[in-house]
Nucleic acid binder design. Structure first.
Lengths: 141, 141
DNA sequence: CGGTATCCTATAAGATACTG
DNA sequence: CAGTATCTTATAGGATACCG
């Protein structure tokens, strides 16, 4: 059996899958909009959307705005929402450690207080875990 | 220009790259050991190790234990160490949201207090950010 | 022990055009 | 709009063997 990290990478480990989840989380919900903002080829986007729905990260919803025809939109499920911290953590890492100038900065902010949101390791005892604290993992091989 | 998430995914977005970083972080430092625990094909492992060194996530170090011949080992750089929260966050997500029984559980624990370590989103104002708090991202498109 | 060298397959990505 | 269809290329992954 593979471990959680390996399987999670299979589920969302591709470039476009992660980017699609981010954009849907930010409110981009329709096919052509997603295609425009991500730049993914349409066939790839179709495939990723289908897979993300299949793994329970996205769901499709029909909706109709007053006076307009019925449309369909993609939305994050709870599992998808829980993926956002992972995105924020990876994006932060990229901003901090990849060569400056090679990437655009992306800030994640908390709607309401407006503060910048970052990912941190915390111990269940309540202590924050510093970068150089050693971790041990218990894996059943 | 691509954004930080896209570039970060290019750097570590492959299955074996992430798994190698985890294992090195847990103390597995030599080629054959890494090959054994990850199961990666040797040619792939060679490639990933080289790329991870090239992007500054791993470094090689020569060392010699008393009475033994010189060896080489891989170690995490500071950038590599900062990747551990991302791994923990993704692994946690997999344990929580992927079908039970499909994955092995992996616990990350804090050496010293022994408590379970998880990744959390925190706001710079000091407040923890809940799963359903809405985030906004500022991206320069 | 720490890789290289081949070879092969599977999948992701990219481009472009078409359809209900 | 929201996809399908088709085709091509690039890259990842897997198996196996060999080498200093």
């Amino acid at each position: 059996m593979e471990d959680a990290l390996g399987v999670a990478l299979q589920a969302v480990g591709e470039k476009w899958a992660f980017l699609v989840v981010r954009e849907v989380g930010l409110g981009v919900r329709r096919f052509d909009e997603l295609q425009a903002v991500t730049g993914a080829p349409r066939a790839v986007l179709t495939d990723r959307l289908g897979r993300l729905v299949g793994t329970g990260i996205l769901e499709t919803r029909a909706y109709r705005q007053p006076g307009q025809r019925a449309r369909q939109e993609y939305a994050l499920t709870d599992a998808g929402i829980d993926l956002l911290p992972v995105l924020a953590a990876l994006s932060d890492w990229g901003s901090l450690h990849l060569p400056a100038g090679a990437v655009r900065e992306v800030d994640y902010r908390h709607l309401g207080c407006g503060g910048r949101v970052t990912a941190r390791l915390v111990c269940e005892c309540g202590e924050p875990v510093g970068s150089h604290d050693r971790l041990i993992a218990q894996i059943n091989r």
